[in-house]
Amino acid sequence: MQRPEGLTRNSDRIVLVVCVGLSLWVMSWGEDLRVQRATKWAHFVATPVENVFQFMADLRTLRSENDELRTRLTALRVDAAYVEARRDRIEELERRAGFYERHRGQLRPATVIELLDGRIPIQAVVRFEDESDCAVLTPVVNERGLVGRVTQVLSPTTARVQLLTSQESRISVEVASSGVNGILAYNGRGFSMDNVPLGSEVSNGDRVFTSGLGKSVPRGIEVGKVKSVRFSSSDLFLKVQIEPAVRFNALDRVYLVTRPGPWYFRPGDMFRSEADSSGSSTAVEAVEP
């Protein structure tokens, strides 16, 4: 329906008069009021525009990060597939060789509530999340490696741990690359690997793991790496200095190894015996030699 010409003309004029009137009214404001209101309106108008631009920038960042993550995910998937294949192969070889087994193990989380004796602590008191089947000599680890062993169960949820920094601590260890065995000890100044015969293959930077020979600690938990190797012709043994993997003055979360974890141990050692004797469903299967 078409509007009458007079009405159209009148509405045009009314709109013009209103707009001009508003403009004149705005111009009649004082300088301060104009600045104040204009700032407020500009903020009102600009904020959504700024938000849109910010959103677009965020979106761009998100996309690039997403691409990067996808790339990393793909690379990790490839790595995971490779590692899985290698693990299967290793398990197959172990099964054929018949002297190593893999077990998922069990770790109990615990919190260090007290570090005892000096700048470099030699003992710690830990508290478990729940009542644990913790016993004396239970190994204690953190994400870096072996921390120590339980020496005293104080209550169903607390225990005293002897750290590797205790001068009374002795742990059987081996050099990963050559299988050379020794005893890890702390002499107050640093860690050493004792009883390593002259001529053994030990080099700086070699990683050192528990050997499991002492039977209190399962095999394969990282202890540190070789810092220096010295010898003299008059000695019977090498002097091997070890750099520990764990930072003993910054302990917070630790784990009690209530059953050996994803490391290797020999059939017949104390953990297998315990598992077998307890009749647990997670007992290690017999291995065909």
Binding site: C19, V20, L22, S23, L24, V26, M27, R34, A38, A42
Partner: peptide
């Protein structure tokens, strides 16, 4: 246009 230049507020409108 005017709200971003407060000193001329109203002039561009008109």
């Amino acid at each position: 246009q005017d709200i971003f230049v407060p000193h001329t507020l109203g002039m561009n409108m008109l």
